[in-house]
């Protein structure tokens, strides 16, 4: 906040329009920039499910992976109901030994 904005606020006025412009732009660009097309989002979703299900059994039907924008931050939100943990993570078996 600049000094001018502060004085405007004290006087009950709107912030300077440049301040508003910057805030509005940052918001809209966060969304524009993360604008994955549905096909890519679906691909990412299935890969995330694949990785997670190596470790835990998940309810694929009840799962949801989506982009949510709040304030200035766009977040990838994954909601994956877990049925049970795997006794031996598949990853431990699938990963090649290092060396």
């Amino acid at each position: 906040m600049t000094l001018r904005d502060f004085i405007n606020r004290l006087l009950g006025r709107q912030p300077a329009s440049a301040t508003l412009a910057k805030q509005r732009l940052q918001l809209v660009l966060a969304h524009d920039r993360s604008d994955l097309n549905p096909e890519l989002l679906e691909k990412m979703r299935s890969e995330i499910l694949e990785v997670v299900s190596r470790y835990v059994e998940i309810d694929v039907e009840g799962g949801d992976v989506s982009l949510e924008t709040e304030d200035r931050v766009t977040a990838l939100v994954a909601n994956l109901p877990i049925k049970r943990a795997r006794a031996i993570p598949l990853a431990a078996v699938a990963e090649p030994a290092e060396g």
């Binding site: 600049t2 001018r4 904005d5 300077a16 329009s17 440049a18 301040t19 412009a21 910057k22 732009l25 940052q26 660009l29």
Partner: peptide, 16 residues
């Protein structure tokens, strides 16, 4: 206008 903060500042645009 920039001086009066009624236009996006140069640094605003380059930052964004």
């Amino acid at each position: 206008m920039m001086l009066n903060q009624e236009m996006l500042a140069v640094s605003d645009v380059t930052d964004i």
